[in-house]
Design a binder for these strands. Structure first.
Lengths: 127, 127
DNA sequence: CTTGACCTTCCAGCGGGTGGAGACCCCATC
DNA sequence: GATGGGGTCTCCACCCGCTGGAAGGTCAAG
């Protein structure tokens, strides 16, 4: 399969797939004309990557997950560990954003938003 | 004031302050020895930037907010508009993360996390 | 006069791609 | 055989918002 078809099947831009090859996540073969040739297993891998990335796993997480996926003697504990770390990151990020949201929400509510210059948002930023 | 003191007062790393000068957010003077010299108003500006960044505003937002702050004839509507746009971004981000959290949370819960290879997390990623 | 803390510039790199230039390649149509 | 259009190739630059480090200048204290 050529990169364009793979892009369609895996739901990733061709550019991203090339980038994933660059950083060693997939190793497609090359045909005589120099085009990348993807096996079914590569397409599968890329779809896996797409889903892992959609869940917010970092590229390095993805690398580890792919390794574990390929290793049928893995311990699920290892996978779970990675996922839990990531869950922690997500929770921290949500907490951070929620706090921003609260502060900023209050400020926005208290701002008249009219033609006058008085603005609690700026007042707060300026302290 | 030299950059080190400003860093302390404004709560920003010196590197960041230099960067902010680079992109035109502050314009400190220079003393004879080439050192940056910050006026009180610069320090104030940098503290403003620090707070705006802590609320997640982009650098470009900050640039606009500083301009509005300096303009005593501003309409608070303009400030509110920027803040509301940002609020929307935050809300979308929170929604995205919350969805990730839900999916990943379920997967993590359903994973035994022991020495055995069976893993619902990998199973889900592989589809 | 030296030491050590500060300051300067410049260049490189993070993560995770994305855009574009310029050049091949392949197939279909005239 | 020429031409056109789509795919593909590599390479380099850029996005954001810094951050780290190297190599050097400056200043005050001891």
């Amino acid at each position: 399969m050529n990169i364009g078809d793979v892009a369609t099947h895996a739901g990733l831009p061709a550019k991203t797939i090339r980038y994933y090859e660059d950083i060693g996540l997939v190793q497609p073969k090359r045909s005589a004309n120099g085009y990348r040739t993807f096996r079914q297993s590569d397409v599968h891998k890329l779809a896996f990557l797409g889903r892992a990335r959609a869940l917010g796993f970092t590229i390095e997480d993805c690398r580890s997950l792919l390794k574990l996926y390929a290793d049928t003697a893995r311990a699920s504990a290892e996978v779970k560990h990675i996922a839990q770390e990531h869950l922690g990151r997500i929770d921290r990020k949500i907490a951070e954003l929620t706090e921003m949201r609260a502060t900023l929400g209050n400020l926005v509510e208290s701002c008249a938003g009219d033609h006058r210059p008085d603005c609690p948002i700026l007042a707060d930023l300026a302290v």
